[in-house]
Design a protein around this nucleic acid. Structure first.
Lengths: 240, 240
DNA sequence: GCCATTTTGTAACGGCGTGTAACAATCTGC
DNA sequence: GCAGATTGTTACACGCCGTTACAAAATGGC
């Protein structure tokens, strides 16, 4: 019962290099040169994990991954060129489970594959998934696990922990005016000596991210003298 | 039903200044010049909150506060001289609910008193307190809300979020060997692209704080090739 | 409507936490 | 003991976030 790995890369040399290393470490390996071949393999074989080159001619690894996620939970590890920060972020936003930066250490790939696989089967039914929620409002989508926020037009921003906490607090209380003090309490940002104007900054930063698509004040309204209010009708969804 | 505030300060001028401002804002105010008077007042009157000068001749505000915490939950606001960082930390470690730096704006005191009172009665029964736990092991004491760790000799260190999460994960699983990977998963530090050696760093930093009293390896043992293990018998306590 | 005052928004700075890389120390098996 | 692997440690860099200071906007009195 060795795990079956599918390596997708247009560069034949890298493909074979990776495949060889994986076989040497006890994996069953298939390869594919592009998205077409990949889908063909996926139809005929049981694949436990896909190693996917980030940049390929024709269908890019990123869009392949995003596409895959619509229909399948098969873990994906991205091969990205430089571990540049933008690459990292984009990789996550597309639903990859991990990534390895090229040039890579073969052992690293093996280690990451093992880690992802172990984790994937560690929570197979839906144990930890119970608390995974998605908030929807005005066409926006907030994924609580990845802390990614998707605008109605599909563009994505990743929130920091603080921004996320704040937005979640709001999303759980639409139409309620929350004072700065309440917001501090609710976001666990409450520590003695912290003054409530710092909430303003978090609000501003959050609004800046929301503003990539909408006028942010439509979503988080400021209520003079009293605080802020989340203005959108929200529905929460369990994501399983 | 105005709230009753007790102002404790050896400096008569400041005491009266504060008291006057508080009365002007609708509070009932008592005053005391030292710890003796304070205790006398506390025996005879219902006091909702204590404003306590940090530095006083004789019994210091800090030790008064620490002492108070052993028998009472009455909120305490410390008046500390400069808002120096050490002061802030020490204040928290002693169980104060907030502090105000001198020289202070009278409005600020009022605002902070209101905030602390509102919070105190916002969770009066034990609503949020259910999750408040204290872990005890080998004479150590870990308060989960304040993230303060008290050594058997009474010395206190404040843990960062990461250090706390790690220690809690351990404390919940005494005698179990946890791999780096598990630790990453359990401490929510798990993000794609993070390698497991970073756990070593957290362990090291945590050990450094534990080492103020014990040989840290006695508490967090390293199990070669497999990970780390919490070595102390633990009991958890609800702190209410 | 205008001006003084209060309230909120924002840009810039700095501190703190923490991941990474590089190196030192330690352990294991021969 | 010695080589190689594993773990500990130091130094550094980067990101998040609280603060400060100032600009913009709203409010109220006239």
């Amino acid at each position: 019962m060795e795990p079956h790995i599918l390596v997708v890369d247009d560069d034949r040399e890298i493909r074979e290099l990776v495949a060889r290393h994986l076989r040497k470490n006890g994996f069953q390996v298939d390869t594919a040169a592009d998205g077409l071949e990949m889908r063909k393999v996926l139809k005929t074989a049981r694949i436990d994990l896909i190693v996917l080159d980030r940049v390929m001619p024709g269908e890019d690894g990123l869009s392949l991954c995003r596409d895959l996620r619509k229909t399948s939970d098969t873990p994906v590890i991205l091969l990205t060129l430089l571990g540049s920060d933008t690459d990292r972020i984009v990789g996550l936003e597309v639903g990859a489970d991990d990534y390895v930066a090229k040039p890579f250490n073969p052992q690293e790939i093996v280690a990451r594959i093992r880690a992802v696989l172990r984790r994937a089967q560690a929570l197979p039914p839906s144990a930890e998934k119970t608390r995974e929620h998605v908030f929807l409002f005005l066409g926006w989508r907030l994924d609580c696990r990845s802390r990614r926020l998707t605008a109605p037009d599909g563009s994505v921003v990743t929130l920091t922990d603080g921004e996320f906490d704040l937005l979640q607090v709001f999303a759980e209380r639409p139409g309620i005016v929350l004072s700065r003090e309440q917001l501090l309490d609710l976001t666990s940002g409450r520590q003695p000596g912290v003054f409530d104007r710092s909430i303003d900054m978090q609000i501003a930063r959050l609004r800046r991210k929301l503003a990539v698509y909408t006028d942010a004040e439509e979503i988080i309204k400021t209520v003079r003298q009293r605080g802020y209010m989340f203005a959108a009708g929200v529905q929460a969804e369990a994501s399983t």
